[in-house]
Amino acid sequence: MTATGKTRTRTAAGALLVAAMMACTAAAAEPTAKQIFGSQHAAAALPSASYGFYSKGCLAGAAQLPADGPTWQAMRLSRDRRYGHPNTIDFLERLSREAAARGVWPGLLVGDISQARGGPMPSGHASHQIGLDADIWLQPMPARRLTPEAREDFPFRSVLKPGTFQVDDRVWTSNYRDLIRMAAEDPRVQRIFVHPGIKKKLCETTGRERAWLNKVRPYYGHHEHFHVRLFCQPGSPGCTEQRATGSGDGCGDLDWWFDVALQPPKPGGKPAKPKPPMMLADMPNACRQVANAPALFDGSGVVAASMAAPAGALGYAPEVRIPIPTNRPIR
């Protein structure tokens, strides 16, 4: 089967899956948002736009990062999370090229970006829903091209000393700092998440030019990769901005992370109550149309980067519909 046929078959299979979920019985549970968006494997044929917040939204007119570029390799291809706002894809490609050209990093290993139409994922992330988040592994790209199979099993590598919250100097070099700095200094970047131990290392090894550290925020995990988040992009009036990062380098606020947040929970504490699954009705209104829109192809079976229609033009009835529950009000 050709690549075009495989892509169209996978897209049709996603539509059939959602249809099957809806057709089981009248009393069957309504499919969750992660089931609806996780079953789709082609971008929505709508102008490129992000809707909602990073952890509750969707993505129209997505671009797909090629699995291979001269200075990047996409990882975990079976997850099919290489889609993003076209500016996100451009950011990743530019960062990889510039880092290689400056001798900072030979190439990026790129992890999850977003699903074909954004939305909540079946596993792994609460954010990454509107095509403006991307994970970059804290490992230089190997000289060899990894096979698709190898990319599934290629091990993560922490930059922390085993059993500690401190960066391992046997792994860490100034190149790690310089790569994160290059990403932070791109004006499209809103913030970057790293492990608190990495933030501490950056604070200790950065000289007088420290303004970029403001964008680098400590957070749980993120010791095997760093997470880049872009601002809402032009043409996305329905995108909800995250609060500003304020001022200063953020290096004086790390004690709480090490003394409180990263410590094990107290014995006998009550576990957090699980949140109910997100439903389509919980998402921005535009996400219903994003989920229903026909697939966007460029004529070769590859999902096209964006639409030529004016951004935000969502006023048409899709030619091909994926059954979406309508028995709940749209909030």
Rank of each mutant, 00 (worst) to 15 (best):
M1F: 15
T9I: 08
T9M: 13
R10E: 15
R10K: 15
T11S: 15
G14H: 08
V18I: 03
A20I: 09
M21F: 07
C24R: 13
P31W: 00
T32Q: 13
Q40I: 05
Q40W: 01
A43M: 00
A45Q: 12
Y51E: 07
Y54D: 14
K56W: 09
C58M: 01
A62L: 11
A63M: 02
A63T: 03
G84K: 04
H85K: 03
I89F: 01
R94D: 02
S96K: 08
E98C: 05
A100C: 04
R102N: 13
V110F: 00
Q115E: 13
G119H: 07
M121H: 15
S123W: 12
G124Q: 00
Q129S: 00
D135P: 04
D135M: 06
W137Q: 08
P140R: 03
M141W: 09
R145Y: 03
R151Y: 10
D153C: 10
P155Y: 00
L160E: 08
L160S: 04
P162R: 14
F165N: 15
D168I: 06
W172A: 07
T173S: 15
R181F: 06
M182L: 08
A184G: 00
R188N: 05
Q190V: 10
I192C: 01
I192M: 02
I192L: 01
G197F: 10
G207V: 00
G207E: 04
E209W: 06
W212T: 12
Y219R: 13
H227P: 05
H227F: 02
F231G: 03
G235N: 04
G238Y: 02
E241H: 11
E241R: 15
A244R: 13
G250F: 12
L254A: 09
W256S: 03
Q263G: 07
P267L: 06
G269Q: 14
K275D: 14
V290G: 02
A293Y: 10
V303R: 11
A311I: 04
A313T: 13
A313I: 09
A317G: 12
R321N: 14
I322D: 05
N327K: 06
